[in-house]
Write a protein that binds this DNA or RNA. Structure first.
Lengths: 176, 176
DNA sequence: GAGCACGTACTCGGATAGGTGTTGTCCGAGTGATGCCGG
DNA sequence: CCGGCATCACTCGGACAACACCTATCCGAGTACGTGCTC
């Protein structure tokens, strides 16, 4: 097991499809299309996007032709934003104030035992801060330009065609 | 919930009782004494110490008068060592190679899709490294001197007496 | 051709379920020191 | 006085249980839009 689950990974990969890789404006895409394109569970991806919307990272529009769009420019959404939105703001360490549980103390621990921050807690806070600042330095836009440098142009065009095709054939009733 | 559970917190607090706060050499103390002094579950603390021993941080001695001692000097045991010992070496992120799941690919994804490290994975690896180096900079000895500066000398003396008393009355049969 | 009803695809939210990790608890086996008893 | 035996406390390790979380699935309700029918 890893500390961050697959939800973070799914969310980041899915959000990259809303940046349009430097194209003309951020597209509106449905969670179903995004999920199917990556062979992910459509229901689960939908659930993740509701969390992203509550965090204010994406904006939803309902109905046919509905979908999600980035609420801010891609260079204003950091990896840390996505993690906090999907996993919830989890502290690295939750101090249980063990130092106040000494058997030598009576009913109420002495005041000095709770003074200041627990030394262990302080170490953890520093480490958490280091990790968060590192994660806050990477934006969706940076990730998008990175993948743009890896995938061949033909592949990129094919992907755009796939999404446009899905979008165009939406709501079209099958003749019966 | 926090990313690190209470096991890490318990382990660090317990290990501090093996440093002797700059006294004369590291003492041998039983998990039961250490746990009771902090009103923790003795069974659970014992389980934690077996993990610490497997990681080579402490050395156990069996039988009456048995207990645990630090396997290395306290300034050679980092907080990171303790975390890895107790929680197991968990990566921050486990890349599932979502990029290889594109619906446009056939049976086998093209070679370029798996080339290099996934951009998302790279960001996570940097953050993990930042956190680990931060955690590796704090040692048990530093934590011990920190608490030594907080707890009053009388309290420290009382604690030492408590442990010596427990140690002396060990194996003493109650007259029936 | 204009207006209306219908169906479709979408989001939203809750209920549910299996798998996994965490936090303890309990217990038996093995080990070493201590106390007691018999020689 | 001394050696052996029982006993106790301790470690070790596994089994077990309650609980929470993660991942995923399923379903109903509400909403916007295209289609087709009616006038």
């Amino acid at each position: 097991m890893s500390q961050y689950g697959s939800a973070v990974e799914y969310a980041l990969h899915c959000l990259l499809f809303l940046t349009d890789g430097g194209g003309d404006g951020a597209p509106v895409r449905s969670t179903r299309d995004i999920a199917e394109f990556q062979k992910l569970s459509a229901d689960y991806v939908a659930k993740l996007f509701t969390r992203l919307e509550k965090a204010g990272l994406v904006i939803s529009s309902e109905g046919l032709r509905g979908g999600f769009t980035l609420a801010r420019p891609a260079d204003d959404i950091t990896v840390l934003n996505v993690i906090d939105a999907v996993e919830g703001r989890k502290p690295l360490f939750e101090c249980r104030e063990v130092r106040a549980n000494c058997v030598l103390f009576g009913e109420t621990p002495p005041t000095w035992s709770g003074r200041g921050v627990c030394g262990i807690h302080a170490v953890m806070l520093r480490a958490e801060e280091a990790m968060r600042t590192s994660l806050a330095q990477s934006t969706l836009a940076q990730l998008a330009t990175h993948v743009a440098g890896v995938v061949p142009p033909a592949q990129k065009k094919a992907a755009q065609h796939w999404f446009q095709d899905r979008s165009a054939n939406r709501g079209r009733r099958v003749k019966g």
